[in-house]
Computed example of a mutant assay.
Amino acid sequence: MTSISSLSSATTSAPVVRQSRFANLGRIWVHVVLCAYAVIALFPIALIMINSIKSRDAIFDNPLAFPTPETFSLIGFEKVLHNTNFMLYFGNSLVVTLGSLVLIVLFGAMAGWALSEYKFRGNRLMALYLALGIMIPIRLGTVSILQLVVSLDLINTRTALILVYTAQGLPLAVMILSEFIRQIPKELKDAARCDGVGEFKIFFQIILPLIRPAIATVAVFTMIPAWNDLWFPLILAPSDETKTVTLGVQQFIGQYVTDWNSVLAALSLAVIPILVMYVIFSRQLIRGLTSGAVK
Results as ranks from 00 to 15, higher is better:
Ser8Cys: 08
Ser8Ile: 15
Ser8Glu: 15
Ser8Pro: 00
Ser8Val: 15
Ser9Cys: 05
Ser9Thr: 13
Ala10Lys: 06
Ala10Leu: 12
Thr11Ala: 15
Thr11Trp: 09
Thr11Cys: 04
Thr11Lys: 12
Thr11Leu: 14
Thr12Ile: 12
Thr12Gln: 14
Thr12Met: 15
Thr12Arg: 15
Thr12Leu: 15
Thr12Tyr: 10
Ser13Arg: 10
Ser13Met: 09
Ser13Ile: 08
Ser13Val: 03
Ser13Ala: 12
Ser13Leu: 10
Ser13His: 02
Ala14Thr: 09
Ala14Glu: 09
Pro15Cys: 10
Pro15Trp: 05
Val16Tyr: 05
Val16Gly: 03
Val16Asp: 04
Val17Lys: 12
Val17Ser: 10
Val17Tyr: 04
Val17Gln: 06
Arg18Gln: 09
Arg18Leu: 07
Arg18Tyr: 02
Arg18Trp: 02
Arg18Pro: 01
Gln19Ser: 13
Gln19Pro: 02
Gln19Val: 04
Gln19Asp: 08
Ser20Asn: 13
Ser20Met: 13
Ser20Glu: 14
Ser20Gln: 15
Arg21Trp: 03
Arg21Tyr: 03
Arg21Val: 05
Arg21Glu: 07
Phe22Glu: 03
Phe22Gly: 00
Phe22Lys: 12
Phe22Val: 06
Phe22Met: 08
Ala23Cys: 01
Ala23His: 06
Ala23Phe: 01
Asn24Leu: 12
Asn24Gln: 09
Asn24Glu: 01
Asn24Arg: 15
Asn24Lys: 11
Leu25Asn: 01
Leu25Ser: 04
Gly26Glu: 00
Gly26Gln: 09
Gly26Leu: 04
Gly26Ile: 00
Gly26Val: 00
Arg27Pro: 01
Arg27Gln: 08
Arg27Lys: 09
Arg27Tyr: 05
Arg27His: 10
Arg27Trp: 10
Arg27Asn: 07
Ile28Trp: 10
Ile28His: 10
Trp29Cys: 07
Val30Ala: 01
Val30Cys: 01
Val30Pro: 00
Val30His: 02
Val30Thr: 05
His31Asp: 07
His31Pro: 02
His31Arg: 06
His31Phe: 08
His31Leu: 10
His31Tyr: 12
His31Lys: 08
Val32Thr: 11
Val32Gln: 05
Val32Met: 11
Val32His: 03
Val32Cys: 11
Val32Arg: 10
Val33Glu: 02
Val33Thr: 11
Val33Phe: 09
Val33Asp: 02
Val33Arg: 07
Val33Cys: 11
Val33Ala: 12
Leu34Asn: 06
Leu34Ala: 08
Leu34Tyr: 07
Cys35Glu: 01
Cys35Ser: 14
Cys35Val: 13
Ala36Gln: 08
Ala36Asn: 04
Ala36Pro: 13
Tyr37Met: 15
Ala38Tyr: 06
Ala38Val: 09
Ala38Gln: 08
Ala38Thr: 14
Ala38Gly: 13
Val39Ala: 13
Val39Asn: 02
Ile40Cys: 07
Ile40Ser: 04
Ile40Met: 14
Ile40Arg: 01
Ile40Glu: 03
Ile40Leu: 15
